[in-house]
């Protein structure tokens, strides 16, 4: 259509044109609120009072001095770490087992493993609250026939983090598994057959051939697992523990919600949100720098 000489200019316009829908939505519903949040993080305000008090950096200073911030930060990393193991490493390995090693039943397993993903985490949380009730749930009752009193996990530091991240993982496992499976399954079988004939162990095939060749999808799952650990983990915290015991299960997202909507400390909550974003931006930049350039794209 267009003349070759004008092509460069056209492309530029088109390139931006294609971004208009996304930018439109984002400007109104993400960027503007974010800048507003940034602005509010320098104020003390309760959302409805006509009086906003400028407090400079004191919201940030308060956060840095508050031991709760440290606790919440380390909780968040524990959540993410557990979810990286359960929702990234395990399904990666299992997708290899299924794509390369397993001979029969693939379709059944795929279908069944994916199912929990369609369920809401609110439902999941209520269900697990019953199933895992250490006194009255099925597991608690079984344990008791052996004379064991299970710890009350929802009130036990550490354990509460593990169980809550398992609840979130339960839902998300299937999706990550299917996506990773598709990537692993797309690797030309001949390459793997050859490697097998050469007597290379499954572990080495996985590590040296499969992971590099599926790394584009791998990165995707890695990043969404981190995002999910940060964002989706909110639901079970809200339904089951409300951040307790004594902030033992609060994550950054939950804490930001708690400050804003339980205590109406809009300024402090805003500051925490800004910090959260900055922190993860740094992580993302590191990922860009160290990982992205080593990713294998098939061209």
């Amino acid at each position: 259509m267009q003349k070759r000489t004008k092509k460069g200019k056209w492309d530029h316009i088109k390139a931006f044109g294609f971004f208009i829908p996304v930018l439109l939505v984002f400007t109104i519903f993400v960027f503007t609120p974010f800048f507003k949040t940034l602005y509010l993080s320098f104020f003390e305000w309760n959302l409805i009072s006509p009086k906003k008090t400028f407090v400079g950096l004191s919201n940030y200073i308060a956060l840095f001095q508050d031991p709760v911030t440290v606790k919440v930060l380390s909780n968040t990393f524990v959540y993410i770490l557990i979810m990286l193991v359960v929702n990234f490493i395990v399904p990666y390995i299992m997708s290899y087992m299924m794509a390369i090693m397993l001979k029969k039943g693939q379709n059944f397993y795929k279908g069944a493993i994916f199912l929990p993903y369609v369920i809401s985490l609110v439902v999941g949380s209520i269900l697990y609250l019953w199933i895992l009730n250490p006194v009255s749930g099925p597991i608690g009752l079984i344990a008791r026939t052996f004379g064991i009193r299970l710890p009350i996990w929802s009130k036990t530091d550490g354990l509460v983090l593990l169980i809550l991240s398992l609840i979130t993982s339960w839902k998300l496992f299937g999706y990550n598994f299917i996506v990773l499976f598709a990537a692993v399954n797309n690797i030309p079988k001949e390459i793997i057959e050859v490697a097998k004939l050469d007597g290379i162990s499954n572990w080495h095939i996985f590590k040296d051939i499969v992971t590099p060749m599926s790394s584009a999808t791998g990165i995707y799952v890695l990043i969404i697992t981190i995002v999910q650990g940060l964002q989706q983990g909110f639901t079970p915290i809200k339904v089951v523990t409300q951040g307790g015991p004594n902030y033992g299960s609060a994550s950054l997202t939950y804490q930001s919600y708690h400050e804003a909507f339980t205590l109406y400390h809009i300024g402090k909550s805003s500051a925490l949100s800004v910090l959260t974003m900055v922190l993860f931006m740094v992580l993302l930049a590191l990922e860009f720098y160290f990982v992205e350039r080593n990713v294998y794209y098939e061209n």
Binding site: L129, V135, S154, K155
Partner: peptide
């Protein structure tokens, strides 16, 4: 028993407390 409200009441209603 020291536990959340819903869990605690579940345990009362099913006869464990």
């Amino acid at each position: 028993l020291h536990t959340s409200w819903d869990e605690g009441m579940q345990s009362f209603v099913d006869g464990n407390v």
